[in-house]
C-alpha cells in the first residue's frame, strides 16, 4: 500500500480525535448539520408516537420501559465491527478472507451474523467507500449495533447518493478528486462494512489498540480513523 498518499484525509480545520469515540449510542456530533429531518413527520411516525403516548397515559407501559427496551436492542447487537477490522489490519490473509466472504470471516472470530450476508469493501489510496440505504435503513446490525439517527435520516439517505463529497465534508472527510468515491446503496439482501486504511503512526499496535480508533462512523465510511497527535 502506498502510504505516501494517505495524507489526503488530513483536515485543514476542525480536527477532532475519534480515538475514544465508542459511545455509538449517542448521535455523532459530526453528523450533517441538518441531521434531523426538517419535514413534517410521516403518517406512521405520527401513529407510532400517538400509540406510545396513549399506552403511557393508560398506564400500560412507561417511558422508562421503552427506553430500557431500546437499551436491550443495543445489548443484543453490540458494536463488534472494530475487532474484525483490527484483525484484518494485522492479518493480511484474514483481510483477504473478509473481503471475499464477510460472514465466513466474522464466524472465524466467533461473531455469527446469522442471516446477514456481509460484503466488506476496502478503502485504498484510490477508492473511498461509503454506505447508505436509500430505501429504508438497512445496516449490518449484527456487527455494528443499531444504526445512528443520522444514518436513518432522510437528509443523509437522499443526499449521500448524489452529492457524497459534500456529505462526507460535513463529517470532516475531504477527498481529492483523484480518489474515487464509491457509494454503496444497501438496498436489498446484502449488508456492507467499510475496511478503512490503517493510518500512519500505528506500527506495532495491538489489535485492541487498533480497535480503539475504529469508530462506528469509520466502518460506515463517513469518517476515517485517526491517530491523536
Amino acid at each position: 500500500m502506498n502510504k505516501t498518499t494517505h495524507d489526503y484525509y488530513a483536515r485543514s480545520h476542525h480536527d477532532h480525535d475519534h480515538a475514544h469515540d465508542h459511545d455509538h449510542g449517542i448521535d455523532d456530533e459530526h453528523a450533517p448539520v441538518n441531521e434531523h429531518d426538517n419535514g413534517p413527520p410521516g403518517d406512521y411516525e405520527i401513529m407510532s408516537r400517538a400509540m406510545q403516548e396513549l399506552l403511557e397515559q393508560k398506564g400500560v407501559i412507561t417511558a422508562a420501559q421503552v427506553a430500557r427496551r431500546m437499551e436491550l436492542f443495543d445489548e443484543e447487537f453490540p458494536f463488534r465491527g472494530a475487532q474484525v477490522v483490527a484483525r484484518a489490519w494485522v492479518d493480511p490473509a484474514f483481510k483477504q478472507r473478509l473481503l471475499a466472504d464477510g460472514r465466513a470471516a466474522c464466524a472465524e472470530m466467533g461473531t455469527m451474523l446469522e442471516a446477514e450476508r456481509l460484503i466488506a469493501v476496502e478503502n485504498t489510496p484510490d477508492v473511498h467507500n461509503v454506505i447508505v440505504c436509500t430505501l429504508c435503513s438497512c445496516y449490518p446490525r449484527a456487527l455494528l449495533g443499531m444504526p445512528p439517527t443520522w444514518y436513518k435520516s432522510r437528509n443523509y439517505r437522499s443526499r449521500v447518493v448524489f452529492e457524497p463529497r459534500a456529505v462526507l465534508k460535513e463529517f470532516g472527510t475531504e477527498l481529492p478528486d483523484s480518489v474515487t468515491v464509491r457509494v454503496h446503496d444497501s438496498n436489498a439482501d446484502m449488508r456492507y462494512l467499510v475496511v478503512p486504511m490503517r493510518p500512519k503512526g500505528t506500527q506495532g499496535w495491538s489489535e485492541e489498540q487498533l480497535a480503539q480508533i475504529l469508530s462506528r462512523d469509520t466502518l460506515v465510511g463517513v469518517t476515517v480513523p485517526r491517530v491523536s497527535a
Binding site: I119, A166, T180, R182, V183, H184, S186
Partner: peptide, 29 residues
Amino acid sequence: VLYRVRFLQTQVWPGYAGPANDIIEMEIF
C-alpha cells in the same frame, strides 16, 4: 437472482458535481 450493479455517478445524476470516475453501486434483481 440478485446482482450488484456499478453505475457512473455522472450517468445517474445529470448534474453530478463530482469527478467523472465516482461510482455508485447497488443490488438489482
